[in-house]
Design a protein around this nucleic acid. Structure first.
Lengths: 202, 202
DNA sequence: CTGTTATTGGACACGATGTATGGAACTGGT
DNA sequence: ACCAGTTCCATACATCGTGTCCAATAACAG
């Protein structure tokens, strides 16, 4: 037997697309299972043949996206004991641009925020691990708690990403936003805005 | 006539507390109006006498909280054309510690994230306004787009705040987290972790 | 004490959920 | 081209939560 019946693939894709589109239009809470199957041109019974409920479908969409992102990011961070390149940020923004609709749904916190929490917690964990590893490699203890560091960095990224991905038409090119983000994160606002002054040590 | 009947105040307070408690236990989507009135020991009909639905009640809770926060922050930022003190951050964390449960509900993104979006958008707007004002006062144009700056800064705050407010028992004292946050935001990671190196200009 | 307002329990129609059919349509492999 | 296996479909059903309405009762402010 093949990995999966063609009908099944088709059905799942249709349901996925329908949910995402409808959530963008009306918001997660206002979308019913019947709405989804109607939009996908499928029977309601078919839905329950694949998923237990709306949350189940959404959960799988999110899990798939997170897995796909991590897959694309893996090769960029394995050799990351060296300096900070910012390639992962760029790649995440690229991924978001490609999967714009799903990202918008997730970053809006639809579905009682479970998806967004999962997404951010996942990223925070990965980033914290990298920070710890790098600190070890350099034999230093970060002046600021690594968890705070990671949470703050991920918070910056996601917050700006949401703002950027929601803007239509795009206010800034991909490369510019990520560059600003990176610059800001590394050098801080002292150097970024022109009125908080230079850092004490400079 | 008095501002509000004592019964009304009591009812609203009970409904408010019941909703918050239940959302923390089961998640927003799993809470019904009947759950709320049962927990509050009130009739379901009474609920509909005050609110149109669950979202309405939650919306008012959130609006009240945002208004209260802005009220507490106002005196700290009016004279903010001068340097960056960080007092507002400290005050927000204090407020969050006092209203821990409501903050947890909001920051988790319950209610399809509407509350969290409102909260962050409100803060981002306020912060962006301050940044612009300060840039004008100093006659400089920030090197980084003010909107990006504001979104990033608020993202940092909220992300760390959620992590901090969810930790039980508290991992760090109030003053320490806010100090780290401020330090990190102003001077950037170059100075904060010990391995990304010093900024180019220093 | 009195007129006003809030709360109550019950009833109602409606829409969405999740489950269960048997038959029709499609699939992958021979 | 055919067949066995599966997926999809239309339909029906019991259940639950919603939002509205009502008349009776209780609590309020002045």
């Amino acid at each position: 037997m093949a990995a999966e019946d063609r009908r099944v693939r088709r059905t799942k894709r249709l349901l996925r697309d329908a949910l995402v589109a409808l959530v963008l239009e009306r918001g997660y809470g206002a979308v019913t299972v019947e709405d989804i199957t109607e939009r996908a041109d499928l029977s309601r019974a078919t839905f329950y043949g694949h998923y237990t409920d709306k949350d189940d479908l959404f959960g799988q969409i999110v899990a798939d996206l997170i897995a796909e992102l991590n897959e694309r990011l893996r090769p960029l961070v394995t050799d990351s004991s060296a300096g900070f390149t910012g390639k992962p940020v760029l790649e995440m923004f690229r991924h978001a641009a490609e999967e714009r609709d799903v990202y918008r749904v997730i970053l809006r916190g639809e579905g009682d925020g479970r998806a967004l929490r999962e997404f951010m917690d996942d990223r925070s964990e990965v980033v914290a691990r990298i920070f710890r590893k790098r600190a070890d490699a350099h034999g230093v203890t970060p002046r600021i708690d690594v968890d705070v560091l990671a949470r703050a960095w991920v918070g910056e990224q996601i917050s700006v990403l949401r703002w950027w991905i929601e803007s239509d038409p795009p206010v800034l090119p991909l490369e510019d936003v990520t560059h600003m983000l990176l610059d800001l994160s590394l050098r801080g606002r002292y150097w970024a805005n022109g009125f908080d002054g230079p850092p004490p040590g400079a």
